Computed example of a mutant assay.
Amino acid sequence: MSADERAADAPTEPRGRVGRWRDRLIALGWLVLVWNLLWGDVSWGNLVGGALVAGAVLLFFPLPPVTFGGRVRPRALLVFLLRFAGELVTASANVARIAVRPGYRPRGAIIAVRMRVRTDLNLALTAEVVSLVPGTLVVEVDRDAGVIYVHVLDVRGPSDLADSRDRMHAIERRLVRASGSAAEVRLVETATVEKGT
């Protein structure tokens, strides 16, 4: 394991008391917002009820802390969003073409893709983005090994499987460029260069 891989997989320093309380307040706010959205009405009763339910959830079902050692890069985030929108349009058109094609039976496959950055946040973000693209669906995530298992629609041969893996690595690379740490960015860039050689 290289130094960049160790740095990318290593947890960040534990947060101080102020940081933990801030995270809890943010989670409380989001839960109250979701509570009010579920009821479809923002009222004093829903705000108080949401605060009570959110407080109970955070007290009895505490979530593990999510560490974020990276930084958001606006330019790379814009590139990610534009490419993601393009992939959504292309994949939607492809799935629509398959759906209206008479007599065509697409073959699916489940592939395992090992992620280069194995942090919980990167695995979760990559899995979410892949699941949002029509024609792909995350079946399982092996957190320890850093492997995402994905069902891919319309596989005609081994080249389609390789293309699907390359697309997932490209999504991971764009996500890490947009929000990863310097070590994580170096890791995905180095892995890309090594693959090309």
Rank of each mutant, 00 (worst) to 15 (best):
51 A>V: 01
73 R>I: 00
86 G>D: 12
95 V>C: 03
45 G>M: 14
65 P>Q: 04
108 G>C: 05
161 L>Y: 00
125 L>G: 07
69 G>P: 08
71 R>P: 01
117 V>S: 09
75 R>W: 15
164 S>Y: 07
151 H>L: 05
112 A>T: 04
81 L>F: 12
150 V>I: 15
99 A>I: 00
154 D>H: 07
105 R>M: 07
136 T>R: 01
117 V>Q: 04
48 V>G: 07
132 L>S: 10
113 V>Q: 09
156 R>V: 08
162 A>I: 12
143 R>V: 14
97 R>E: 06
77 L>E: 00
163 D>R: 13
77 L>T: 02
59 L>R: 15
101 R>A: 08
52 L>R: 11
61 F>Q: 13
83 R>N: 14
138 V>W: 00
101 R>V: 05
158 P>F: 01
142 D>M: 07
92 S>F: 08
62 P>L: 03
76 A>H: 14
133 V>K: 05
87 E>D: 15
139 V>K: 12
120 D>M: 01
133 V>C: 04
128 E>N: 15
67 T>H: 06
84 F>C: 10
114 R>P: 11
64 P>Y: 05
125 L>T: 14
45 G>C: 09
135 G>H: 07
93 A>W: 05
69 G>Q: 04
51 A>M: 08
59 L>N: 10
155 V>L: 03
147 V>W: 07
91 A>F: 13
91 A>C: 08
140 E>S: 10
142 D>A: 03
163 D>Q: 13
44 W>K: 11
128 E>A: 15
